[in-house]
Design a protein around this nucleic acid. Structure first.
Length: 491
RNA sequence: CGGGAUUUAGUUCAGCCCGGUUAGAAUGCCUGCUUUGGGAGCAGGAGGUCGUGAGUUCGAAUCUCGCAAUCCCGACCA
């Protein structure tokens, strides 16, 4: 038994995470620092995230498009705040040709192939998109423009972790242009709702919907909406953002339209995105010391069926029982894998499907054939029971929904249990280190937030959209406050 | 950008202090037999420019110096 268990979460949470990502076959380190290879199983999960969101975007009238990877350097300096936010982490293309090394050692950059204007590998695409939208928009009849792109972006991070923070990552970025402020602001909120609905109902990750404080706001935005999730170690993770950009980019890139009254107006903008970071959120919300735990609505394989057999004849006999079950499940749209591989023992397969988070596992052998039974194991509770084959399809259909609901509830209960009010600065300083969300009063100034961050590493994760009005005193400055905001230590 | 560590088989590592036949183990892989209800067993087999460049030496995985890459912990950031 050379097989190694994961480091338990209680022992070293971040080591547990790193091992899980690799052992569940989701991703691995690449030859390039900070960049990851997403393996087929991990990518299958990402594809399901993509498919679910993409369908929801289209219901909102959003169309997909594609804008280039490379952005002229000059574009980035058009919006001052925006460039300040990203300048430190941009990769720059300076040359367009290689040549044989005159000293005979492979290839070198051809010094004569320097670009007239350097190109930036997109850290995000606002600038290239707005320089393009300028040409697309002339009349109120051209609005709104609702575009999204699925692509990669690059931010040269000092320190990276698979999925959570990589130098290159996959995401979608939606960019919309509207005639009025109200419409843009409303659209940004609608997209936040799309994210929250998807993340909660498909990924089973409970999220807080809120607004970012000025310090945490996207560079160049007037308002940043976000969904915040709580990981099992009590840290916060921003799972998605939607920005109301006002007219900042319209003004920087001179994007105007003519109103019905034939007056030129700047357009109003939004942008919104989620990234492969959602994979990190998924892992850290549900998984346990045995590996990944996937919500059935998202799992690439929802039901794995493991026949237990000695000879081919036995397998054939078992398959006559299994195949109809698999076919019925597939007909109901359930993703099933029948694992007939004979080079792995059943025990190995059990452990493997557990590590990969497959929600339901069925096992059936000679004993079951005699008894007309099948063993059903569920990943979320790690329990198994032997049930009659009759009615198994109905049982599984219901079980998948039960698992989906159960893991969402478990995550929600955890968040509730680890969210508390805090009204004393003394208490805050010790409580915040224990993890979880602290709902506190805040005087609304960036200075106070900055100071709190400096002293405790905690930031305001969001001002919840449903935060009730409540008079109180700022946890740090004692100045008056009208509602509680959520503080936490974040990824 | 600071601090620490690592670099030898596909993977995880031993060997280095104290230089010396053909560089080892486990696991994985291939072949055969036997097995299969929680990570099976036996036998055989393939697999290595010891990160890189110099130096010391009759001789370097091992000693010296340089360089690079990666990982972890901080600072910074989605």
């Amino acid at each position: 038994m050379a097989y190694q268990k994961l480091t338990p979460r209680s022992e070293n949470y971040s080591q547990w995470y790193n091992e899980l990502v690799v052992k569940a076959d989701l991703a691995e380190q690449s030859a390039v620092r900070g960049c990851m290879v997403i393996k087929p199983y991990g990518y299958a999960i990402w594809e399901r995230i993509q498919a679910g969101l993409d369908a929801r975007f289209k219901q909102k009238g959003v169309q997909n498009a594609y804008f280039p990877l490379l952005i002229p350097k000059s574009f980035l300096s058009r919006e001052a705040e925006h460039v300040e936010g990203f300048a430190k982490e941009c990769a720059v293309v300076t040359h367009h040709r290689l040549m044989n090394d005159p000293n005979g050692k492979g290839v070198v950059v051809d010094p004569n192939a320097r670009l007239e204007e350097e190109l930036i590998i997109r850290p995000t695409s606002e600038t290239i998109i707005w320089s393009t939208y300028k040409n697309w928009i002339s009349s109120y009849r051209d609005l709104p423009i609702l575009c999204n792109q699925w692509c990669n972006v690059m931010r040269w991070e000092m320190r990276t972790r698979l999925f959570l923070r990589t130098a290159e990552f996959l995401w979608q970025e939606g960019h919309t242009a509207h005639a009025t402020k109200e419409e843009a602001e409303d659209f940004a909120q609608q997209m936040l709702d799309v994210y929250a609905d998807f993340v909660e109902s498909v990924m089973a990750i409970p999220v807080l919907k809120g607004v970012k404080s000025p310090n945490e706001r996207f560079a160049g935005a007037l308002n940043t909406y976000c969904i915040e999730a709580m990981m099992q170690d009590g840290k916060a993770l921003q799972a998605g953002t939607s920005h109301f950009l006002g007219q900042n980019f319209a003004k920087s890139f001179d994007v105007t339209y003519l109103t019905k009254e034939n007056k030129p107006e700047y357009v109003w903008a939004t942008s919104w995105g989620v990234s492969t970071r959602l994979m990190g959120a998924l892992i850290m919300t549900h998984s346990d010391d045995n590996g990944l735990v996937l919500p059935p609505h998202l799992a690439p394989i929802q039901v794995a069926i493991v026949p237990i057999f000695k000879q081919q004849e036995q397998l054939d006999a078992i398959l006559t029982k299994i195949n109809p079950i698999a076919d019925q499940l597939k007909a109901l749209g359930i993703r099933v894998k029948v694992d007939t591989a004979d080079n792995m023992t059943p025990g190995f397969k059990f452990a493997e499907y557990e590590m990969r988070g497959v929600p339901v596992r069925l096992a059936i052998g000679a004993r079951d054939i005699e008894n007309g039974t099948i063993e059903v194991a569920r990943r979320d509770t790690l329990t198994k029971e032997t049930l009659p084959i009759d009615g198994i399809v109905e049982h599984i259909t219901a079980l998948l929904e039960e698992i989906q609901a159960n893991i969402f509830k478990k995550a929600l209960d955890f968040r509730i249990a680890n969210t508390r009010n805090c009204d004393s600065w003394e208490e805050f300083q010790t409580e915040i280190q224990k993890g979880g969300f602290l709902a506190c009063h805040w005087d609304g100034t960036p200075e106070t937030e900055e100071k709190i961050k400096e002293l405790t590493k905690a930031t305001i994760r969001c001002i919840p959209l449903d935060a009730p009005a409540e008079e109180g005193k700022c946890i740090y400055s004692g100045k008056p406050s009208h509602r509680r905001v959520i503080f936490a230590i974040a990824y």
